[in-house]
Amino acid sequence: MRNILALTAMATLLAGTAVNAADTTLTISSYGGVYQEAQSKSYFQPFMAQNPDIKIVEDSSSSNAKLKAMVETGNVTLDLLLTDDSFGLDADAQWLEPIDYSVVDKSKFIDGAAGTYRVASDIEGTVLAYNAEEFGGEAPKGFADFFNTEKFPGSRAVWKYAASGIFEVALIADGVKPEELYPIDVERALKKLDTIKDDLVWWESGSQSEQLLSSGEASMALVWVGRAVNVAEKGIKIDWTNWTSQTGYWVVPKGTRNKEAAMKAISFFTEPAQQIEFTKYMPYGPSNKNALASVDAKFKGSLPTDHLDTRVLMNADWWAENGAKVDLRFQEWLLQ
């Protein structure tokens, strides 16, 4: 009888433990593909190992519009979402929970990586990539050379998107200092772009930008750093004289039932060990300044955070306020 009672008590205890082991489910939405696979290995799996009471469910349909709709209808099914530079600003406060900096250590981040409503997951960038065999041993040095078609002839590939950094690139090539870029002088930038308009080919996906470089259709390109690294074995090199910033950010939808767990996850994901692990899989730099010196050797030298001194930090607030108007002018210019 005692054995039966003991077994019954044990079964009850184990059942209770099983229930408690998954008493919080944290749904995280990211970009999918190899990027999210790297996040899962570096962030999600280790977090669950250290926090057995929290289960992470992955979603790969990251969408600012989806997040807004969830909040507005009161049906918030996501707890944490990865977004880009265009979202998570003060103007988006109605859809987001403020980052709890009593949980997340704000002092550990590099400049610009920790905002009121968002925290940088990783530091990315758009870089000047070029075919090393095209220019007889010469190498471009900065955005000014992107416009120097006499010394560096051939087509230039550019993202067909006004807020891609192309306006900043044109103005820096025209002599504007990075700290004096904003407000963007749109007409001056377009006038500079006119000088190479016939040499421009436009890409609209990352894979297309890779193809333009690797096929030789473009001898030079402004591309996302991950795409440039992907084609390095085909003779493509990166010039780090100037590059424009892009960043992945964690945001927490307003009204999530798991805000505390979401903040705990952000804190863990942005610790040095996790961010260093992430650089084993992706050529994106840590947002935690304490991880910068210890990144994985595989991509050392090709990470944006290895070149922070030449970063052109784009003003996301300015683009959020002015982007629609600038894009209309950009589309008009494309048709001229």
Results as ranks from 00 to 15, higher is better:
Val19Ala: 08
Arg227Gly: 04
Ala144Leu: 04
Gly33His: 07
Trp240Ala: 07
Leu334Glu: 09
Lys41Gln: 11
Gln208Val: 03
Asp198Phe: 02
Gly74Cys: 13
Asp122Trp: 00
Ser60Lys: 10
Thr279Arg: 06
Asp84His: 06
Val103Ser: 14
Asp309Ala: 13
Met1Asn: 12
Asp185Gln: 11
Ser164Cys: 10
Pro52Asp: 14
Phe268Lys: 09
Gly112Phe: 03
Val76Trp: 13
Glu210Leu: 05
Arg118His: 05
Thr310Val: 12
Arg311Met: 13
Asp174Pro: 02
Ala120Ile: 02
Glu180Arg: 04
Ala293Ser: 12
Lys289Asn: 11
Trp250Asn: 06
Asp145Gln: 07
Ser63Val: 08
Trp224Gly: 00
Leu334Trp: 06
Gly88Lys: 03
Ala38Pro: 02
Lys192His: 10
Ala22Trp: 07
Pro283Leu: 00
Met314Glu: 15
Glu124Ile: 00
Ala49Ile: 14
Pro98Glu: 12
Gly175Pro: 04
Leu78Lys: 01
Ala91Cys: 01
Ala38Phe: 05
Asp79Leu: 12
Thr244Val: 15
Glu134Met: 09
Ala49Lys: 09
Val103His: 03
Leu213Tyr: 05
Ile196Val: 14
Leu81Ala: 10
Ser121His: 07
Lys259Trp: 06
Lys55Asp: 07
Ala15Phe: 10
Asp185Lys: 06
Val19Gln: 14
Met263Pro: 00
Ala324Asp: 15
Gly137Met: 14
Ala18Pro: 06
Thr83Glu: 07
Glu204Ala: 10
Ala262Tyr: 02
Asp105Ala: 14
Phe44Asn: 12
Leu328Arg: 11
Ala93Gln: 14
Met263Thr: 02
Asn258Met: 02
Glu260Ser: 06
Thr195Pro: 04
Glu150Tyr: 07
Val34Trp: 10
Gly125His: 02
Tyr117His: 09
Val127Glu: 10
Leu89Ile: 12
Asp174Lys: 08
Glu124Ser: 11
Ser86Cys: 02
Arg156Gly: 06
Ile4Asn: 13
Ala6Gly: 02
Ile4Trp: 10
Leu328Gln: 15
Ile238Thr: 13
Ala11Asp: 03
Phe109Gln: 10
Glu124Pro: 00
Asn230Ile: 00
Ser294Phe: 06
Asp145Met: 03
Asn64His: 11
Leu89Ala: 10
Leu334Gln: 13
Val19Ser: 13
Gly206His: 08
Ser86Phe: 05
Ser207Leu: 11
Thr83Gln: 13
Pro183Met: 15
Lys234Phe: 03
Ala93Met: 01
Trp333Ala: 08
Asp185Thr: 04
Thr241Val: 06
Ala22Met: 09
Ile56Trp: 08
Thr270Asn: 14
Gly125Asp: 07
Ala261Glu: 01
Tyr161Lys: 07
Tyr130Lys: 03
Lys237Phe: 07
Asp317Gly: 04
Val229Asp: 14
Lys160Arg: 12
Asp198Arg: 11
Thr17Ser: 12
Gln246Arg: 06
Ser294Cys: 03
Thr12Gln: 09
Val176Gln: 15
Arg2Cys: 05
Glu210Cys: 05
Ser63His: 06
Glu37Phe: 01
Val252Lys: 00
Gly235Lys: 09
Asp53Trp: 04
Ser102Asn: 14
Gly74Val: 08
Tyr249Arg: 04
Gly255Cys: 04
Asp122Lys: 00
Thr126Trp: 03
Val176Arg: 12
Asn315Thr: 13
Ala157Gln: 06
Leu303Asn: 00
Glu97Ser: 07
Trp202Gly: 03
Ala132Met: 01
